[in-house]
Every structure is written in C-alpha cells, then in structure tokens.
Simulated assay, not measured.
Amino acid sequence: MTGTNLPTPRLRAEDLTLSYDQRTVAAHLGVDIPDHSFTVIIGPNACGKSTLLKALARMLRPRHGRVLLDGAAISSYRSREVARRIGLLPQTSTAPGGITVGDLVARGRYPHQGMLRQWSAEDEAAVVEAMRQTGVLELADRPVDDLSGGQRQRVWLSMVLAQQTPLLLLDEPTTFLDIAHQVDVLDLCAELHARKGHTVVAVLHDLNQACRYATHLIVMRPGGTIAAQGAPADVMTAELVEDVFGLPCRIIDDPETGTPLMVPAAPRRFAPEDPEDPEDPEDTEDTEDTGDGAPAAATDAVMAEPR
C-alpha cells in the first residue's frame, strides 16, 4: 500500500538507477503513477525525464531497482503483453518509406493480433477512431513522408491510441507542433484521461502547460533525482522553480483555469517603477536649489546660453 486507503498503482518504480553505458543518468528514483491520473514529468534539460519514461515502458533496463506493472516486475512480461497494457509515443520515430497514414496507424493493432486472431472489424474501428480523435482521418491515404512535422506527430499519436491501452506514455507529445496544435493534443490527452479513464504519463518542457493539464507532477532535478511529486497546486512554488531551474519567478493563478501559472521575474530594466522609491541621489544633486528659486542645472544652462 502507498497510503492508508490507496491501492497500489498499476505502474510504479522502486529505487531505479538508470544508465547509458557507464554513465549514470538518474539514481534512486522512487515513482508512483496514480491510476487514472494525468501525470506530467518536468525538469531541466538532460535531467533524465525521457530516460525515466523509457524505463517505465520497458524500453530501458534499469541498472538497479525495478519497474512494477500490475504488481509484477515489468521485465517478467512478454513484449506483446506489455504492449497491450502500455502505449508509448517516443520522442522521435521513423516511418517505413512510402507507408500511408492508415497503414501506419493500423500497426498500433499489432499487440492484439496472433495466430488465432487476424484483422477484424474491431481493429478497423479502433484505427478509424484513433485517426478521428487526432484529426488525421482525411489523411488516411496520404504517404507519411508527404506530411508536415506537426501532421506526422499527430499520426504517431494515432498509432498509440489505436493500441487501446489503459496506460499511455508520451515523450514530448507536442514536439513540432505550433501552439494551437499543442493545445489540441493536450486537450485530447486530458479528455482520454478524464472521460475514458486512461492513465496518461507525459514528458513536457512547458511548466505552465504541465500545471494546466496535470493532475500529478513529477519534478526532476539536474543530476536525475526527484525534487517533488504531487498535485500541481501543492508542488509548484517559486522556491521550487528557482531551486530546480535556476529561474526566479512568481507563481500566480491562471486566470482561465485557476492552476499555478509561472511568471519569470523581469529583468530590472523591465521592472515597473515604484513610486515610493526615494529619488536617485544623483538626480537630487542635479536639481539642487541655488537659493534664488531656480534649480542649479537650470541656472547653469542659462549661464551657458550665448547672448
């Protein structure tokens, strides 16, 4: 049990140390992914966010510790069984040359195929629904190679949705997207979480998007350790942002959602003037009263004026 009345989450990590070759990226990570949550992992560049996500998806074997899926070590499952429970959208993906959008999305149904189960009407419906949700249904017959970066990202997300897994792991799902499509994709993820019960785990760079959409935050420090975990309203503070990112800021309420909104501190040249600040001593010196009612600077100007 992770709490007095809380069941053990389906996906969790215990004391993970993650490495590439001999280089340790993250150490002693203990992470619980709350069931039916929209969990967002944030942190500075190269802190191990994507590495942690890969370990949770069994794409990277931990050097130490373990990932648990439904109470068992994820390493104990067959690959097809993991793919029926966890859908992963990696940071970068390469499609086979010449493949169409519809055929690529259909590959998301691979975990559900087998010797005794071939392509069915259920598979076809899942593919069509996934493309409809991401707005790429009209592109079904187009080669993936002909699409823009943003369109391709939505197609890859469609393929993950076609898997119809209860757990969705998304590594920077808004990559290559303009701001309007970023919001569209994150709105879709929020809908999958809220209305369809999916547990969504996403790596994001934008702190304000993370706070707006997440129900649970995992904040990683440089060096690959956990700085904080919890609800955005409980976790996101100005002290945390400055400690983890080295960025002075203010945290205010988002006027649209009431979630924490991070506002970076302005450079001094942009800071509003404070009317209560005392006058600059140098300014006071320049306007010193000369005794005849005229400031010294004005008197000097009159004296210097040619007659």
Rank of each mutant, 00 (worst) to 15 (best):
L177Y: 05
G223S: 09
Q118E: 14
C211E: 02
R154D: 00
D178N: 07
P7S: 14
S158Q: 03
L89S: 04
R307P: 11
V101P: 00
A214C: 11
Y213F: 12
A297G: 03
V128I: 15
L147Y: 02
M1W: 09
I252A: 09
E273M: 12
V144F: 00
T215F: 07
T284C: 15
P232Q: 04
Q91K: 14
G291W: 05
V31L: 06
V244Q: 03
T299K: 07
F38A: 06
L170Q: 01
T257V: 04
I99P: 00
E242W: 11
L207F: 06
Q164S: 13
V160M: 05
H205E: 10
T51Y: 05
E124G: 14
Y110T: 06
L89A: 07
P222H: 13
D21W: 10
D277C: 09
Q182L: 05
N45M: 08
A27H: 14
D206R: 08
T39D: 03
R80S: 14
P275E: 05
F245R: 02
P275G: 04
A180C: 07
R307D: 13
P275A: 03
V136W: 00
A228R: 10
I179N: 06
T17A: 06
A26S: 14
A194M: 11
T174A: 10
A214T: 08
P264E: 14
R66M: 11
P275N: 04
L53R: 04
R132F: 01
V183K: 02
A265C: 10
A210K: 01
D289R: 08
H36F: 12
P281F: 06
Q22W: 11
G150N: 06
A27E: 13
E273D: 13
V219G: 02
N5A: 15
A231H: 14
S37R: 07
R23I: 15
T299I: 10
L88I: 08
I41N: 02
G224R: 02
D123R: 05
Q209Y: 12
V136F: 00
M236I: 05
R107F: 09
A130S: 08
L6Y: 11
V105I: 03
P173Q: 08
Y20N: 10
P306F: 08
T165Q: 05
H28M: 15
A231K: 09
P96K: 13
D300P: 08
A301M: 10
G224S: 11
Q182R: 05
Y20R: 10
P44A: 07
G65V: 02
G43K: 01
